[in-house]
Amino acid sequence: MAEIPDAIAKKEAKLLSILSDDILELEPDFRTTDDLFEAGLDSMAIMRLLIHVETAFGCRLPVSQVNRENFSTVQKIAALIPAE
């Protein structure tokens, strides 16, 4: 069953707040479709992000999904996280 848009938006907002509170210095107008690598995401930041995702969403992303393409925007990372 497709995820409802509200649930997706909620997930993206939660992820964006994790990123801006604990991982990166993001501009206030940073959007869920903006490039995270341009904003400074690197492998060290991804390590910390994976731990936060596990705590906040209760899921551990499989290694096969952790790559540059899947982690380039908040929207793409959120799509990897299963619906709550």
Partner: peptide, 16 residues
């Protein structure tokens, strides 16, 4: 390639 991402995944799992 994506080895740095795999290392990030591995180390985060080990810390967790």
């Amino acid at each position: 390639g994506d080895a740095r991402f795999r290392l990030a995944h591995l180390i985060s799992g080990a810390v967790a």
